[in-house]
Computed example of a mutant assay.
Amino acid sequence: MLLKSLRGLFALLVLPFVLTMGLGLSTSALAVDDQTSQQMANSSEVDLWHAVKTGDSGYTTKKGVESGVLINVSAIEATEIKNQYLTPAMGLAVLGVFGAFIVFYFVNGPSKLSKGYSGKMVLRWSKADLWIHWVLAISCLGLILTGINIMLGKHILEPYVGEGMWAGLIYASKFIHDYVGPVFIISWILCVVKWMPLQTFKMYDLKWFLVVGGYINFGPFKGKHPDSGFANAGEKMWFWTLTLFGLFISVSGMMLVLPGLDLPREASFAALLIHAISAIIIIAFTIVHIWMATVLSEGGMECMKSGYCDENWAVQHHNLWYDEIKANGTLEYKD
């Protein structure tokens, strides 16, 4: 009896201890499992966000180009390039080139006709040429002004106008930009096809560059009027710049505004950067072209108003062309 009583007492003492130990071990095991699961969950989450941030493709029921990509890395990079480099470059193209020509004009003055106006007007451009030029010029200026507002407006206009006015301005700029684009493309094609035969570079064009076209009114360059055909070297450079970057800006513009293309976002942002770079170059050359034709060249603007130029202007600025039409009998005066 005594032995049984001792055994019962031992069991009574030991059993709670065993149960406590077992419960403690179970709790520890559960804690370890919990920690392992949490670590696995955290690791899985890290991997998930790493994949998202690097632009990996996942699974989605939506069908389409890159529909499984949550974050497009190239889009972020393209936006940074645009904001950090292209936007300031466009501002420099507008203000820098324009400012440089103002300084040049006040220092140098315009290129005067050395023999003055002759009073005799020589046919230079046909009516078709004038139409092509002005449609191209007006559409190009419309795209430049609206494009500058789209790129720079939030920096130079938005802080000084109300939200409602800014919203209207940016909407109007985008609308005009999209619908003037096709007009520019068509007139650009006509310009390239019709005027390309006149724009081949010749050896005498090198001298034109060396003496800055005869526009310098001081120093050793004063009074130097280099040989030039129908188009001088500066006009040829402008034409080929417009031809090349007009192609880039036209193709990239269509890629950006035609929704049916369903392009990858990398292609869309590449088109955006190409469009902006081409616009900057065209803007800079357009400012140069306008200054040269209107302010720096006495008698130059008349060519694109009536299609005729003064005979002394033709002799001074395009002597080889004048000699050619005089020799072959195609010289035509205005009645």
Score class of each variant (00 low, 15 high):
206 L>H: 04
212 V>D: 07
240 W>N: 00
237 M>I: 01
166 W>G: 04
235 E>H: 03
201 F>S: 04
142 G>K: 07
186 I>A: 15
167 A>D: 12
121 M>S: 13
245 F>V: 07
245 F>R: 09
236 K>W: 00
242 L>W: 10
152 L>R: 08
137 A>D: 10
230 F>T: 02
130 L>G: 06
187 S>Q: 11
123 L>V: 11
144 I>T: 14
165 M>K: 10
155 H>T: 06
168 G>Q: 15
196 M>T: 04
188 W>Y: 14
239 F>Q: 01
140 C>K: 05
210 L>M: 13
178 D>N: 13
202 K>T: 10
182 P>W: 11
129 D>R: 12
139 S>T: 06
210 L>R: 12
242 L>C: 08
137 A>W: 09
161 V>Q: 04
229 G>N: 10
140 C>S: 11
132 I>E: 02
126 S>K: 13
121 M>N: 12
166 W>S: 02
216 I>M: 09
220 P>T: 13
206 L>P: 05
127 K>W: 12
159 P>I: 05
169 L>R: 15
238 W>Y: 12
155 H>I: 04
242 L>K: 07
233 A>Y: 02
137 A>G: 10
164 G>Y: 11
128 A>N: 15
243 T>D: 00
182 P>N: 13
139 S>D: 08
131 W>M: 15
155 H>V: 06
244 L>E: 01
152 L>E: 12
226 P>N: 05
173 S>A: 14
148 I>P: 02
203 M>F: 13
172 A>F: 12
154 K>R: 09
224 K>L: 06
136 L>I: 06
148 I>Y: 04
121 M>L: 15
145 L>R: 03
238 W>M: 05
168 G>D: 15
203 M>E: 14
221 F>I: 10
243 T>F: 08
217 N>H: 12
132 I>K: 03
149 N>K: 03
202 K>M: 10
223 G>E: 04
133 H>I: 06
141 L>I: 14
235 E>G: 02
228 S>Y: 06
150 I>R: 11
145 L>M: 09
166 W>H: 03
230 F>I: 04
240 W>G: 00
221 F>P: 14
175 F>N: 10
230 F>R: 08
225 H>F: 08
191 C>N: 15
202 K>L: 05
241 T>N: 05
156 I>P: 01
198 L>A: 11
189 I>C: 15
232 N>K: 00
